[in-house]
Write a protein that binds this DNA or RNA. Sequence first.
DNA 1: GTGAAAGCGCTAACAA
DNA 2: TTGTTAGCGCTTTCAC
Lengths: 350, 350
Amino acid sequence: MNLKNLSDVLGLSQTTVSRALNGYPEVSELTRRRVIEAAQRYGYRPNPHATRLATGRAMAIGHVIPMSSQNSVMNPIFADFAAGANETYARHGYEMTLSIVRDEEVENKYRSMAETGSVDGIIASSPMISDPRIEVLNRIGLPFLVHGRSSATGYEYNWLDINNFRAFRVATEFLIHSGHRRIALLNGPEQLDFAFRRRRGYLDALRRNGVGHDPGLVRSSEMTEPFGHESVIELMRLEEPPTAFLTASILTAIGARRALHDLNILLGTEVSLVTHDDSLDYFGNSGTEPVFTSVRSSIRAAGRRSAQILLDIILGQREPPVTELWEAELVIGKSTGPGPHAGWSAGTGQ
Amino acid sequence: MNLKNLSDVLGLSQTTVSRALNGYPEVSELTRRRVIEAAQRYGYRPNPHATRLATGRAMAIGHVIPMSSQNSVMNPIFADFAAGANETYARHGYEMTLSIVRDEEVENKYRSMAETGSVDGIIASSPMISDPRIEVLNRIGLPFLVHGRSSATGYEYNWLDINNFRAFRVATEFLIHSGHRRIALLNGPEQLDFAFRRRRGYLDALRRNGVGHDPGLVRSSEMTEPFGHESVIELMRLEEPPTAFLTASILTAIGARRALHDLNILLGTEVSLVTHDDSLDYFGNSGTEPVFTSVRSSIRAAGRRSAQILLDIILGQREPPVTELWEAELVIGKSTGPGPHAGWSAGTGQ
DNA sequence: GTGAAAGCGCTAACAA
DNA sequence: TTGTTAGCGCTTTCAC
């Protein structure tokens, strides 16, 4: 059943039927009812390819994943973000096109997507501090939104980011206020913007509170379990070992935790471990020591929101650049609780 | 630059140019050269929407992820599988459409994809032993391929699966030959077909080797770290605790490992731990005890292959049902090595 | 070996 | 408020 069939059945022109179905105002309510009813009855589904050809809109958003960031990308963060974005796309009749390409080919992929018009916009994730993708996308002229930021870029661009600076400042201050002075940071790769900001948040907390900074206590790498393990082993060998660890991912935290076990160090007594991830219910440091989490639901919400912003821009309902800084839903406590911890909400984001 | 422009420039008809570009035989070699050269020079890119409308092919494959399986799905397995599939799609000019929908809506999604023709085929992952999706897809008549199998389905369908039965039989036999008699299995959710087969492989190894089966040693759940932890704690409390653990995922193994630490049990001496995943380099049981892994590269290869099979079916180059059982690249050793362990390659798959 | 012309199913001026 | 008509850019018969 196509538009022609349907209009024949109704004794109307294709135009009118099309208008009725697409909510154009100049159709009488009566006609609209009839049309919609008939469309339903006959199970009419517009052919998306025809629509795309006629309108020039692809009705699709591209998510391009550089293969190198697969580790970081195909993690729960991507999953939740994508799930959220998908909800929004579906509601607006858009599709999500996923491309996983080698780093060298990202630019080509963008370019061919733009040239063939196979997507109407692009979402780029996990940018580096200085990420060439942003310049490329700017040059190409395809609407795009960055999940995260790229601090060292001279271009204007749309982004939605979590306030990693504040999240890690808060976590660090929590440890400081618990009496710690030597706090290690097991950070992600610091060419990634979010990791860079996390370190700054950590440093800011030290500075604000007059705690000296020992660069030897900061390590940065792919956020794997082995990294957490090795780091703890090495750091605990220092003359003045840290009394607390702040980690950037659950895998790293797990590795760190195991290393502490291996060293027979009592978690929550001799050393504190604080991390930044979800589902850490059982992970509580010996029952009394809190963990620090940012819940997955906020990532999903960020996905929804990012998709909405991009669609708004594409549909001309919003003037770029659009920028939104979200506060992570911080939970300082033994488990993922219902909301932000009241005592730690002070301070502005960055 | 569209087809008309290009043909004008060349002084040829659109027909000829189209034929030349699409490799039709009736074009003279000279013309073809000219056309291809000009296309390149002018950066001609066919409009995919027009092609789709004209041919009725969507040039896209849908991957539909039920939201409930997000845990299992948005894990490295999905990532690697998708990366592999993407390679193949790209080579054939296909796109990958990712939909993450609530369980109740999966059927609707399939149906609407079929009715609107927005994809030419579908890949379904991680099926349950009895998975309603397969019947639905059969009824809908959209080509599809299942990554995994659905044992209790009365329908014919195309699938590509890893031989989980054999993989877990081999792992179990390894433990038996190492002298273990009480081997615990920390399995995934057993309504999932792969988990079901893994248990059967485990049971088969016990039976073949005359080792008694204690159902109390088999546990099954979402493959999380807490599950591994709790299971070990509980099982080690038994009057006759296991002397070895076989786990189905790295997260579970990590949890199990930590529990053994918590209990002050020496891994590789008092208890063995064997798992089934990748990147376990540092995870080796105290240096002497092997781990058991199926490497991620084989998942990526499975993605490539699955995509190829589906495309072949769509293009009519292969008669369904196509079924392929792959042997996992097993590595019995301390780290992910180069290939299967020779001593354990006997026996047929299932 | 090449071309003319119809058509894929929809949208959007323009007319009425 | 509705209809006529001309595309969108490609593929594909059919004729030459």
